[in-house]
């Protein structure tokens, strides 16, 4: 019962909010869609903390995509044994995780101690920080504890199939129920974070400016079709 609630209902609700929330936010609030950078206030700490955190979390995200979406049978089919995979994943993952955490620690210290940055912090930001850091801590903690006790859990046989089953629309909560409590808490926290995501500053993840690599340097835009900055009224549209 709790399994169904936490690992079937919650993921679907959160994913629905995640997708629809982004669509709604993009339509309703393009102006609020920004990184809300505080570099203008302080740059010494940001210079270290921000790249550390961002590059760290990009690596962590890449690791999660690999670990969750690629079935164990596939990696074994190309001759990567579970032990080898695990060794690489744990070492890279721990380094990336610690970079992320160290970066986040610097950024939070900065946010609390630098006056202007602190006063520019909204309640929304604080909730986001709790969810994000909580999720990172749970994930990193689970990995480290599992490996310290000597017999790490192979999440690719439990958590990953469950995660994929959500997207097949054949959710199987029993799979993840077999994983240690740390994994289950991490997954739950992550889904709650996903539900909050579209309403926080985290939306800036989806505006990664990759188009910059291909567009011409100077953008020309015609005043049409929206003169001034309001759309033409019905019956007043321009004659083409």
């Amino acid at each position: 019962m709790t399994g169904t609630l936490f690992f079937v209902v919650l993921p679907y609700v959160c994913l629905a909010i995640f997708v629809l929330g982004h669509v709604w936010r993009y339509r309703y609030d393009k102006f609020g869609w920004t990184t809300r950078s505080s570099q203008l206030y302080e740059r010494r700490l940001l210079r270290i903390g921000s790249p550390l955190f961002h590059f760290g979390i990009l690596l962590v995200a890449a690791g999660h995509i690999g670990g969750l979406l690629i079935p164990e049978s596939w990696t074994e089919a190309i001759g990567v044994s579970e032990t080898a995979y695990h060794a690489v994943a744990v070492s890279l993952g721990t380094v990336a995780g610690f970079c992320t955490l160290a970066g986040a620690a610097i950024l939070i210290y900065r946010r609390r101690t630098v006056g202007p940055v602190f006063s520019a912090t909204t309640r929304n930001d604080k909730v986001m920080y709790v969810l994000l850091i909580g999720t990172i801590l749970l994930g990193l903690g689970t990995t480290i504890l599992g490996n310290l006790t000597g017999h790490p859990h192979d999440y690719r046989l439990t958590v990953s199939p469950w995660f994929r089953s959500i997207f097949y629309f054949q959710p199987d909560p029993d799979l993840i129920q077999a994983a240690p409590i740390g994994f289950r808490l991490h997954a739950t926290a992550a889904f709650i974070l996903f539900a909050f995501w579209p309403f926080s500053r985290l939306v800036h993840v989806f505006s990664a400016p990759l188009g910059y690599l291909t567009r011409p340097y100077i953008v020309y835009r015609s005043r049409d079709p929206r003169l001034g900055n309001r759309p033409a009224k019905r019956g007043w549209e321009r004659v083409q």
């Binding site: 505006s207 188009g211 567009r215 100077i218 953008v219 835009r221």
Partner: peptide
């Protein structure tokens, strides 16, 4: 501008 938000008005 990475986002291409700054533009020169053609007119």
């Amino acid at each position: 501008c990475p986002s291409g938000a700054i533009y020169k008005r053609a007119e």
